[in-house]
Design a protein around this nucleic acid. Sequence first.
DNA 1: GTATCCATGTAACCAGTTACATGATTGC
DNA 2: GCAATCATGTAACTGGTTACATGGATAC
Lengths: 187, 187
Amino acid sequence: MPKVNKTKYAILGVLDMRPCSGYDIKKFCDSGISHFWNENFGHIYPVLKELEKEGSITKAVEQGDGKPSRNVYSITQKGKEELTQWLLQPVEHSPARLELLLKLYFAKSIPAASMIEELERVKEKHAQRLETLLKMEKLFLGNETAKSDAGFPFWLSTLRYGIYDAEFRIKWCEETITNISAHQLGK
Amino acid sequence: MPKVNKTKYAILGVLDMRPCSGYDIKKFCDSGISHFWNENFGHIYPVLKELEKEGSITKAVEQGDGKPSRNVYSITQKGKEELTQWLLQPVEHSPARLELLLKLYFAKSIPAASMIEELERVKEKHAQRLETLLKMEKLFLGNETAKSDAGFPFWLSTLRYGIYDAEFRIKWCEETITNISAHQLGK
DNA sequence: GTATCCATGTAACCAGTTACATGATTGC
DNA sequence: GCAATCATGTAACTGGTTACATGGATAC
């Protein structure tokens, strides 16, 4: 079976919440869901055109006074059906490709210090990510409007995923640094 | 900066351990490191040709009696240097794209039962993965030859990563199923 | 005045996937 | 006889990235 274009469904999903321009969609991805989903302009704009052509979304040009004009897209009934169909399908398996682990696997021929530095950097990155996610969670749990939305438990669980993920990676970095160091000393 | 061809380094890394045919490389990826790295023939063979052309690896044709002939590749000094250079670089950031979380985020418009079923499937998949990884770890820790190899702590840590990863995902699936169910009942 | 944000798009590129093609050998 | 495994490759495709191009508005 051929791989499906996920950008398409990401766009339909965002437009199912509210009408957006391409720019809005990008902003939304960068702020709200960037810890598990990312898109770039070079893909969003062409896919928006495609979706419009096949009747899954409609375009309305919004003329701002002074402001640059925006193409605001809305989802159609057809688009909603397509989105629902996709949501009902099991997730496609995508083969893992973790560059850090690949490097680690081959790392015996480089100085251990270099790998340890890299692990420290990665750990720090995830520690920052964890902080951000915990802040987001706190804000979110205190937001009564969000809490009353039917999407609330789903949104919360995506945050929880990110938190668990960051936590285990930090733990693993620490453990790995310790083990590699110990092994170096024991040689 | 342009994205680098990771397949190239995966191949160099495998050949740095021992000479291999394209088929061997594929087998190795599928068995030993598939929980964090994957390759397919359609990419391995062309990249092997490229690497040979640029002098990072050399080919030797092995004529088996009766058996189909194999192209066995070995890494050259140039290839080793290239591999080392890559190992010393920090890992490239690759933007997250987790289809399951994207679906979950948009899931309020489909029946909760459908999403819960999916989460049960995913949980089961990771439970099986966890079992396999734990078995591998046990075998590995009991293998004296492996233990004496300089690569041992690195190989072990990639296994540990997989184990932590599977564990947190299972925990998260359970939590998410509980939360979604509770929210459904409370409506 | 200059950097950042708003806003839309195209073109080139390429990494990686899938499907197709071929054929020998081994084990049941 | 048939399925699975060993073994190598090509062609077509496409999803996604990066770089390039443009220009107005806003904030410092």
